[in-house]
Simulated scan of single mutants.
Amino acid sequence: MKSRIFKKSNNLKLIIIGVSALFVFLSSCGQSNETPTIKDPIPVQDLQPDLPTATVDSSMHGIGEARDITSFELVAEMGVGWNLGNSFDVVSKDKTDWGNPLPNKAIIDAVSEMGFKTLRIPVTWEWNQSAIAPYQIELNYLERIKKIIDYGLENQMHVIIDLHHDNEWAKPIPSLAVNVNKRLHSLWTQVATYFKEYNESLIFEVMNEPRIKNIPQEWTGGTLEGRNIINDYLKTSVDAIRATGGNNAKRHLMIPTWAASTSPDAMNGLVIPNNDPKIIISLHSYFPYLFALEGQGTWGSAQDKADLRAEFDKIRQKWIVEEKRPVILGEWATKKTIAVKNRIEYAAFYAKEATARDLLTILWDDGGDYQLFNRNTLTWTSVEQAETIIKNAVK
């Protein structure tokens, strides 16, 4: 995705990450798990913008009373997914700024017809939400997002919406934390209220890759202070959603680690808000980094496969086995610069091995560097790769 170009693409950053990973490992041995959390109450009376509820067709799939099922049961139903990347998540009012056409029904229909069962819609709110209390979200923006959700539901898909590139205001640093909590509380109260009539087929992912940008630990698990502030942001968001009642009392929610990282510091530092039973762990695993995200070299040796299996085993052991929480790998991909044959081989192995470990995969497709579906021509960059993912993501 466009943001991935400027956030993860230079050699200097790789050097910094390697050094910082060693530092984090050495320093974490003596870390305490106790850090202060943000305890200022949210002044609800100051955060009450207009709270419209979407008008819906009660006969449509995804509308009506939510079933009281477990998150494991929901994830088992969902099926392999596809990301509508670089659309609603564009950091501009103009959602075509990163080269894709505006999302439309033809795009979602084509993705569904290929066999993808879950639609993830990354959403950046900053350009369509007031930065001051009561942090009103533009109604027409909610309406635009609703249309795409409905196209997914009409295709019998599960749909995920998130808070994506809102990193400039939602930074996990102490000086901003009180105001960030207020804005998150208002944002998710508005979103949850608007989509209250949607049942468990709609999932809220309360943050995407929360982190402090451009610090040495940005992609290696962050800082203890930052991780604890993120935990507080997650709790604020979950509490706001649950407080709206109705289907939102039973809605399944996704929460990420620091930067959605699979590093030990990030995964061990995540605290489940209120030990909520309907929480799904959201992780991103572009693995191995140099091949999958940077498009360097080739992949497929016995060691390459063993390393990727070990990555999946680590995730499964931590969350599914030990913590009894389902996992969604909300982003994975390979660059278009990689030979198509190698992309297909990697995709087949990734989808098969993740699925074998009950890890639901959602392919990142930005319509650009990581394109699999060309939204301008409504054609697949590689039909064989898409079909390979679908085939291998079924047990």
Rank of each mutant, 00 (worst) to 15 (best):
S9Y: 09
V24W: 05
F25R: 13
L26W: 12
S27I: 12
T37R: 10
I38E: 11
I42L: 09
P43E: 09
V44D: 02
D46R: 09
D50M: 09
L51S: 03
T55Q: 10
M60Q: 14
G64Q: 02
E73G: 07
V75G: 01
A76S: 15
M78H: 11
V90H: 04
K95A: 00
G99E: 02
D109W: 11
V111K: 05
S112P: 03
L119T: 07
A133G: 01
I137K: 00
N140D: 14
I145H: 08
K147V: 15
I161F: 07
D166L: 02
N167E: 09
W188C: 00
K196F: 02
N199M: 01
S201A: 15
L202P: 00
M207K: 04
R211I: 07
P216W: 04
E218P: 03
T220M: 12
G222L: 12
L224F: 03
E225H: 05
G226D: 04
N231I: 09
Y233E: 04
Y233I: 08
K235T: 13
G246P: 06
N247H: 13
N247D: 12
L253V: 14
P256K: 09
A260R: 07
N268C: 02
N274A: 10
I281L: 04
Y286P: 03
F287H: 11
A302Q: 12
F312G: 09
E322F: 08
E323V: 06
P326E: 00
A347K: 10
T355C: 11
T355P: 01
T361L: 15
L363R: 11
R375N: 03
N376L: 08
K391D: 09
N392L: 06
A393Q: 11
